[in-house]
């Protein structure tokens, strides 16, 4: 190995790296919120009794998640360039459409995993259908899919790196810029890899600590009996 390590160059550009980190966090949060909302709506449609709704939800899910995220980004940025959306908005759109398909599948399977007796019992106790969904089915489904949702959130953070190809100045983009100036290839990329790793670990650590999500739901057993 003849490689001379020089971490001072990375340290000198710490402000750029920090800016990139902030944009990555902002991009992830801005995409995660609509992703969860759309995913929940589509997933609920996918679990509904109406065949047309299920087909529509299925088409959305298959259409969105079988196209690479990179293509999603380019479509919004290049093919729909006449909309003149800023790159950040294109990245949010791409990430949201792509990830919401995965969330929809999770929500659908989560609702399916809640015993049917729960919704019927809620209806029998006088709750309206939307109340039964909101107060009885969703909370239980959420607990079931919480671990998968957590890994989806870290997936989204990592996927946000692809926004660099449409010139969103997030972490990977800044890494490329710093590398181009300093040629400290190894140091720069290892640094941002560690930062991504830290973000992902932080998210999974935080989600683990949300009260009520960690304990497995025991309600199902009682309802089955």
């Amino acid at each position: 190995m003849h490689y001379q390590f020089d971490w001072s160059q990375v340290w000198q550009h710490r402000d750029l790296i920090f800016d990139g980190l902030l944009v990555t966090v902002a991009l992830s949060v801005a995409s995660l919120v609509p992703t969860l909302i759309i995913g929940m709506l589509i997933g609920t449609l996918g679990a509904s009794g109406s065949r047309a709704a299920r087909t529509a939800a299925g088409l959305y899910v298959e259409g969105m998640r079988n196209v690479p995220l990179l293509i999603h980004m380019y479509v919004w940025y290049m093919a729909l360039a006449f909309l003149r959306l800023p790159p950040f908005a294109c990245a949010v759109l791409g990430l949201t459409l792509y990830s919401s398909a995965y969330v929809a599948e999770l929500v659908r399977s989560g609702i399916g995993a809640v015993p049917r007796g729960q919704a019927r019992a809620a209806a029998a106790s006088g709750l309206r259908p939307w109340q039964a969904l909101l107060l009885v089915v969703y909370p239980q489904a959420l607990r079931i899919i919480a671990p998968s949702l957590a890994s989806l959130a870290s997936q989204l953070i990592k996927d946000s790196s692809l926004a660099s190809v449409i010139a969103v100045a997030e972490l990977s983009y800044q890494a490329g810029a710093i590398e181009g100036q300093t040629f400290r290839t190894f140091e720069v990329y290892i640094t941002i890899a560690v930062l991504y790793l830290a973000l992902v670990l932080l998210v999974s650590f935080a989600i683990d600590r949300i009260p009520g999500l960690r304990d497995a739901p025991s309600v199902g057993r009682i309802a089955d009996a």
């Binding site: 990592k158 996927d159 946000s160 990977s172 490329g176 590398e179 190894f186 290892i190 790793l197």
Partner: peptide, 14 residues
């Protein structure tokens, strides 16, 4: 914990 893009950069450059 690392994005694919970064993995590719590491394999190609680093």
């Amino acid at each position: 914990g690392t994005p694919l893009l970064v993995v590719l950069f590491i394999c190609y450059f680093a």
